[in-house]
Design a protein around this nucleic acid. Structure first.
Lengths: 332, 332
DNA sequence: CTCCTTTGGGAGATCGATTTCCGACATGCT
DNA sequence: AGCATGTCGGAAATCGATCTCCCAAAGGAG
């Protein structure tokens, strides 16, 4: 009950392995239609499926692309992986997703595993702007690598990201237009390029006196901690910009329990526009990434000759999605 | 700048390929410590990493295990995949996660892709109890396959699942003990074994007159639809058991907007104990799966001789996690 | 000192599909 | 008819690591 090989198909069809291969792998070479039919028929009858390892060994290509995300516990990265998967699938490939558990060491390990011949190319959403660089540079020397959503110093390759400064500007302008002027920032994960950029953009807009709450990472738990601090300062603040949806969600929940009205007393915004936002009461204003366009561009870069992947950052424009959490004060 | 091969390492160390392989792949054969040292050293210096395809072709084993989940958009399946990943990693393997987009056709395609020589074995969380069977049976004939969390008719293999009936019983008993006697069920995805079992268990406990709201799938959107129907019947109900956390979350949000107090007027329970539950106000009572123990058992079965994977269902006991959404009526 | 056992290491076969190279045959043209 | 052109299919090389043989050298026994 061992799996049928190409040889079995060839014998069943009465041709050589070479001919069978030409028919099944679709080499540009013409094959007599009658023989082709016999081969197809034999392959179907035997339930033949080419041995992936053998093909990969011979052709040096696996048809698989990998993506390493910081963590799948954040639904944003699930959405991101899904957007990439759509485009990879459309191009006839398979996507392999890895979770780095928010740890640069595990990230490096995952990259190594994938590059051990399992993938033709790799997307990485680096955990850390400073610490992820070396492992990525090493990987990029062996296979095409494109960074996505975040960049890393010394990575030696191109990054396709969001224009985070523009996103923060959109949020702050929107809040000011709705009459909020004492805006605080809840930022997390400053080790990541996106976290750092959002913080920097906010500080630049608001000056050094701006209220900021810094947290180690993007988790809902961190969001709750932030909530407690914001509650303490409730009278000096009328809006909070959160660096991630998961933070906003935790924050709103905490404000709620402390009977601080949202958006009545404090307006709240998220970042990433994940699906859970719509479930909250009130639904939360956020920033949407053009993930599909970014994924398309990233895939193009991955398949381009390596000279087009010089270390740099390409930025896409964010879109503001307004929801009830930023309605003008003392609403309904 | 081509990658170093075993031959390169062997030459650099002044030994044959065979010896280099024995050292690096750790064959039980003894090798002179001095030679071993030279090989290790050369491998490190050249940055050698074995070609995965070549090794897989020769040994017939990939060191990779796959898991196909219905959708990663439901955080429960992310948790589930993570639990499996922990155990696979601990055993020295790699896990490849695939998303079936809740569609049996895509599921079959993903299974086929993975089985084309990419994995040694496969876990599947079947999308449908009726429609997923054939593709799984076909897969199980070629490689070890173990179903996880859900089963499928005619799969021809073993399933490691939760005792859903016991879980529903835990929830209903808990609600009755806190004084709720007019309990409704919001169930989704009856096509899946878990959805069907939860509905059946509830109907059996409550009789045919029981109020049930059936929805096509486990999404937050479906949860909101259910919310509207529950609101309409608010006076005939004092508790709602939801077949999934994502449903409960959407439901609570809707009740909230309609000013129906939770748990004051209606108590709500979820299912799966995902992390988002704690973020809600009130936090939602749910059922926790012993995922780690289930994953361990499933992995053992996957690696056992095929005669131990006869078609059957093994059930694990659920645990009730009580939170504020089921506090006794007219609380605080 | 010789013979036998043990141990370590190398040559080459092998896994299965792809692909190059070449020969056989048919067709078209002069 | 003879030659050039082109098409098609098969034999064999190839990808890189592993593993089976088998030979050589070293150590031990008599």
């Amino acid at each position: 009950m061992t799996a049928p090989r190409l040889l079995d198909v060839a014998e069943a069809a009465g041709v050589s392995r070479a001919t069978a291969s030409r028919v099944l792998a679709g080499t540009p070479r013409n094959v007599d239609p009658e023989l082709a039919r016999r081969v197809e028929e034999a392959a179907r009858r035997l339930g033949y499926q080419a041995n992936h390892s053998a093909r990969a060994l011979r052709t040096g290509t696996t048809g698989t692309i990998g993506v390493v995300v910081p963590t799948l516990a954040n639904p944003y990265f699930v959405q991101l992986a899904d957007a990439i998967a759509q485009h990879v699938r459309a191009a006839g490939g398979t996507l392999m997703v890895s979770d780095a558990a928010n740890d640069p060491a595990i990230e490096a390990e995952q990259i190594d595993t994938l590059l051990g011949g399992r993938v033709d190319g790799l997307f990485v959403v680096p955990v850390s702007a400073n610490e992820s660089g070396p492992a990525i540079r090493h990987a990029a020397a062996r296979r095409p690598v494109v960074l996505f959503d975040r960049w890393a110093k010394g990575s030696g390759t191109v990054a396709v990201t969001l224009d985070n400064a523009a996103a923060v500007r959109l949020l702050v302008e929107h809040l000011e237009q709705t009459g909020r002027h004492r805006i605080a920032l809840v930022a997390a994960d400053q080790a990541s390029s996106s976290g750092a950029e959002r913080l920097a953009a906010f500080t630049e807009l608001q000056g050094d006196g701006a209220t900021t709450v810094l947290l180690p990472n993007f988790t809902t738990d961190a969001g709750r901690t932030a909530g407690r601090r914001i509650v303490e300062q409730r009278d000096r603040i009328d809006a909070v910009v959160c660096g991630a949806d998961v933070l906003a969600v935790g924050l709103v929940s905490t404000l709620h329990r402390s009977s601080v009205a949202v958006p009545g007393k404090i307006a709240v915004t998220g970042f990433d526009d994940t699906e859970i936002l719509e479930l909250f009461d009130p639904p939360i204003t956020s920033i949407r990434h053009p993930l599909s366009a970014m994924a398309e561009r990233a895939l193009t870069l991955l398949q381009a000759p390596s000279r087009e992947r010089t270390e740099r950052v390409e930025r896409f424009q964010p879109q503001l999605v307004v929801r009830a959490s930023t309605d003008t004060g003392s609403g309904s």
